[in-house]
């Protein structure tokens, strides 16, 4: 310990590939986050639907994606989708497919938990006020559900940011992949991996601060 001399010039010298990787990471995260926010709500509606087959499909989808490692999902989709469908898409789209479905499953659960936490008295109040079922959903249930779900949705998004690093294993040039490549090329893994870790950390911390803030605000607003 202490014998190692740190040399961060390797970071500045390779700034461009690292930033290019970061850009891929952020694009993946942003696109999948949007897919997850919308898809999660749709799947959640399917789970709560009155049509049984719809429910079964949705529940199977959620359980399958929640109970297998994200890495397995990514690799499976990379190897097996071309086999099954005889098509080969750009790896970037395959990654979006895999990560998007993963976060959709987790967000569906978050929405469901939020909707179930709305007390039944609110439904009764809507009926008492003579609201139609559609109006009840739009004006009373949906806003509350989204509000209640926000902390978990954000936490899931932080998880997504970290899960995007898995695409490095299937050679998509994200931040993790660029770091890995540079580490082997320059023989300075310590500086590079530490920097990469720090970038992920710096992206996650503000988000988790927002989660904490949301939880406190929600608690005081809905108390």
């Amino acid at each position: 310990m202490g014998r190692y001399t740190w040399d961060f010039s390797v970071i500045t010298a390779n700034w461009d590939p690292l930033m290019a990787g970061l850009s891929v990471t952020l694009q993946l995260t942003a696109i999948c986050a949007v897919i997850g926010l919308v898809g999660g709500f749709v799947v959640c509606q399917m789970v709560m639907s009155r049509i049984a087959p719809l429910r079964w499909v949705a529940v199977a989808f959620i359980e399958l994606f929640r109970c297998t490692p994200a890495l397995v999902q990514i690799i499976w989709i990379f190897y097996c989708v071309p086999f099954f469908f005889g098509v080969f898409y750009d790896p970037f789209y395959m990654a979006i497919l895999a990560l998007g479905m993963n976060i959709t499953a987790f967000n569906a659960e978050a929405y469901r938990a939020a909707i179930q936490s709305i007390p039944s008295s609110h439904y009764d109040a809507c009926t008492a006020l003579g609201m139609s079922p559609l109006k009840k959903t739009i004006y009373v249930i949906l806003p509350q559900a989204v509000l209640m779900a926000i902390p978990v949705l954000l936490t899931n998004t932080i998880g997504l940011l970290q899960q995007t690093s898995l695409v490095a294993i299937v050679a998509i040039a994200d931040l993790m992949y660029e770091g890995k490549t540079l580490a082997t090329q320059t023989y300075r893994p310590i500086e590079i991996y530490t920097t990469v870790a720090f970038i992920y950390f710096a992206l996650s911390v503000p988000l988790s601060q927002v989660v904490g803030l949301c939880e406190r605000r929600l608690r005081s607003r809905l108390a």
Binding site: M1, Q162, L166, A183, P189, I190, Y193, T194, A197, S204
Partner: peptide, 20 residues
């Protein structure tokens, strides 16, 4: 706040080098 993958890489490749 960091991916497990980078944690693994760090403990595999960086810590041994740091500790010598």
């Amino acid at each position: 706040g960091t991916p497990v993958l980078i944690q693994l890489f760090w403990f595999f490749f960086c810590l041994p080098a740091l500790l010598g």
